[in-house]
Design a protein around this nucleic acid. Structure first.
Lengths: 251, 251
DNA sequence: GAGAAAAGTGAACACCGTTAGCTCGCTTAC
DNA sequence: GTAAGCGAGCTAACGGTGTTCACTTTTCTC
């Protein structure tokens, strides 16, 4: 087992003991199985007992790894956010770095594609905020969510920097709205000086619109419109891009 | 119990027998209690055994009224759609019939208000399409959903009739999109001749946008923006109205 | 009042999350 | 090298769930 030493230790990682490694592996396995059950039977189809059974152990044993089913689901949520973020990054990376327009379009399409390919997972991330009351601002899941959002914040930030779209006059917004938008910009990490509340408003509006069309499709409302809503999505994306001063391109 | 005869029989209703009446009452009671549990503990907090316990009977007895938990939830969904539709109609009715603009704004605000006041219920109606595979096109729930949608179809239809907004050129849309939009118009009952695919596209786009902002708020995403997203909602509503040629008015 | 149909019950099956107390084996300290 | 300690996992148990089946009780109809 000294083969492991072939992989150079990550700097500052405190030499994970053997126990630690097998622990990580078990934890990963639990989440893998949970993910499979999620995909196959939806969020309510994930059960500790079934997972344990599949692993050849008993349910109480899982409590050594997660404090309960809710905790597992939260961990899963964090992983899924990371997976989605990776899918988005990959899509973005397949476009020249200088091509901001292409990167934004690719990123948005990647979110939709991932959602359609992973309905239950998408619902877990973007559906009704189940139980978690306040959703613990500092939970790993929330953290992963922010990391996902960061990709889009960066893209949007660039649009602002390049002065792509015309910003509505500040006077149009009520003071309440303005202060909310400013707080939002601060929290999400938009570059403070350039990102006027008007610009944030435009971006947030686009994001809401995008969220709406993707949720509708993934949650299978408007199912009566058509099986394949790609045409509608692309039409919406075209409008969205237009509003942002981004040149639309067919996929 | 002959007091019942004081209420004139509804025409064509085949004289409900006493048994039938008490059956209806029990059915209503089951749904009432289910609704309370839904409100209090979310969709997963609705259980047949708990309902039966509260009614002083046993769970298997409920199978005389619903074929299972899923069936109950579907019935509940239908009732909730009706309740939401009633709330919307009430809001609409509080505005002069001739004031199309006011009625539309009131109707949209009513949906948001209902959703915020009934989060779990809203999630049941507009959240991820749980299990029901195809969601049975002809289920009572789907029927109730269509009746809810009809209110907005009527309002939108009127906007089209009044030629409120400029319709994008037909040529802009791909053939695939056009045929989808036309199918949609047919299915939802837009008045065929006037409702061009372009007009439908504008309306659908607005609906998606509205869906997006309300879902985000009700599902408590963007929770970090602010507790009270009313300002943002109103801003969005203003834009939406502008796009439809509807005069925005503060609530 | 007899017979049929509906309403409701009890027991059982197969699941579920979670807790408590225990055993066994690996790791660490002496 | 051995003894202590700690972590992983197990068994048993509690209370909860949906659902089925056979049975009894109630109610309506003739």
């Amino acid at each position: 087992m000294t083969r492991e030493s072939a992989f150079p230790q990550v700097e500052n990682a405190p030499a994970p003991t053997r126990r630690e490694r097998v622990r990580q592996a078990t934890s990963r396995e639990i989440k893998e199985i949970a993910r499979r059950h999620l995909t196959a039977h939806g969020a309510s189809g994930v059960s500790l007992r079934a997972i344990a059974r599949e692993m050849g152990m008993t349910a109480p044993g899982l409590y050594r790894y997660f404090t309960g089913l809710g905790d597992l689901m939260e961990a899963l949520q964090a992983d899924l956010f990371a997976e989605l973020a990776a899918a988005v990054d990959a899509a973005e990376a397949s476009v020249p770095a200088a091509d901001t327009d292409g990167r934004l379009l690719a990123a948005l399409r990647a979110v939709r594609a991932w959602g359609l390919a992973n309905r239950a997972e998408f619902a877990l991330l973007f559906g009704p905020a189940a139980s978690q009351a306040a959703a613990a601002e500092d939970s790993p899941a929330a953290e992963a969510g922010r990391r996902f959002a960061a990709t889009f914040v960066a893209l949007f930030d660039q649009l602002i920097a390049e002065g792509r779209f015309t910003v509505p006059a500040e006077a149009e917004a009520s003071p309440a709205l303005r202060s909310q938008l400013e707080a939002f910009a601060r929290l999400t990490g938009f570059s403070g000086d350039r990102a006027s509340s008007g610009a944030i408003r435009v971006l947030l509006s686009c994001w809401v619109r995008f969220y709406g069309i993707v949720c509708m499709e993934v949650f299978q409302h408007l199912g009566f419109v058509a099986d394949d809503m790609e045409a509608l999505f692309e039409a919406e994306l075209r409008d969205l891009a237009a509003g942002l001063g981004v040149a639309y391109r067919a996929p």
